[in-house]
Design a binder for these strands. Structure first.
Lengths: 171, 171
DNA sequence: TTAGCTGCAAAACGTTTGCTTCCCG
DNA sequence: CGGGAAGCAAACGTTTTGCAGCTAA
């Protein structure tokens, strides 16, 4: 099997600009308040997949004049505007990431909770083909891999495939 | 692209035995109480992907002596024992299905909420290969397609890719 | 006999919302 | 100025849990 279309870490770099998200907000005609700007900045700087509580924590660290309700409202708004993507990696809370660094999927390290991003055109095509074969037009899809670091010898107990609580990336 | 390993409806048939799940419970040494047996029967007969509330409703119809807390506890227990699989198809509630009818994936009709099952060996292999390439041993994975019935002409508005509330299959 | 299950009601959890005040455009 | 946004706290819907009594093994 050939999977050479993989890119180990499609993002992992494009976050320097702290105004990235704010610009997108303005583009879509959103009113930019102080807290909106603040949250946008936190999101622009996030390299991981934080949940709302974590975003709130990071925002607070920069400026105490935010409430968690506003974070919830903003995050929901930005998702509706297509600026953010919401994920459920298992753990009870939704986790967010900016959509502006390309389509990709996630591999969750079940040992550490760390999330690794990857892209795969082959999978993309396969998903579309399967949907078509079932008589559907593909509108969206979700692919998540759960794995553990491959060590030459198969040691260690099994462990959950979908952890119910707490991860290690971004939250 | 060749996806001929698809099977439109891998299950769709193997549910006649109302004691299927109960047997699995006994195999794993679970104490079989009346309500456990009841819930096991409801699960054995389910051809869909019911949520807890729906399971509760179906159980109640057969015998009023169950509480929803017990359904929650049982469903969690059976998931831990590997007898049930929990899914989040978007909609706020977890949905369950027995694991004993083969590995398969789901396509959710975003218009109706109906869930269609399918298998695909090619995807299976691809997932494993991607994980390996990233240096991981694949422990589990999730693939969900969201689509709408393909009509020759592209009518109708876009609609959510991941509905936040209410589905139409099993709940 | 007793480890483990059940029911009930209360609590926990993440998330949303009503209302009033505030502020961007 | 006017309409949307923020803060607070209360409400929400799903799921878990403490406790007292029950039951399968």
């Amino acid at each position: 099997m050939d999977t050479r279309t993989d890119t180990p870490h499609p993002a992992e770099h494009d976050k320097p600009d702290p105004l990235r998200i704010e610009r997108l907000c303005i583009e879509r005609g959103l009113k930019m308040t102080g807290q909106r700007r603040l949250i946008a900045r936190v999101l622009s700087e996030a390299m991981d997949h934080p949940d709302v509580e974590e975003l709130y924590r990071r925002a607070l660290a920069l400026d105490a004049r935010v409430s968690i309700a506003t974070v919830y409202r903003t995050v929901r708004l930005l998702e509706e505007k297509g600026i953010l993507e919401r994920h459920d990696f298992g753990g009870g809370r939704a986790r967010y990431e900016a959509t502006d660094h390309g389509h990709h999927y996630h591999l969750i390290d079940i040992e550490t909770g760390k999330v690794i991003e990857f892209a795969d055109e082959q999978h993309e095509a396969l998903a579309k083909a399967i949907a078509a074969r079932l008589g559907f037009q593909l509108v969206g899809h979700r692919l998540e891999l759960f794995g553990r670091k491959a060590s030459p010898e198969g040691a260690g107990g099994p462990g959950r495939r979908t952890p119910r609580r707490r991860g290690g990336d971004g939250a």
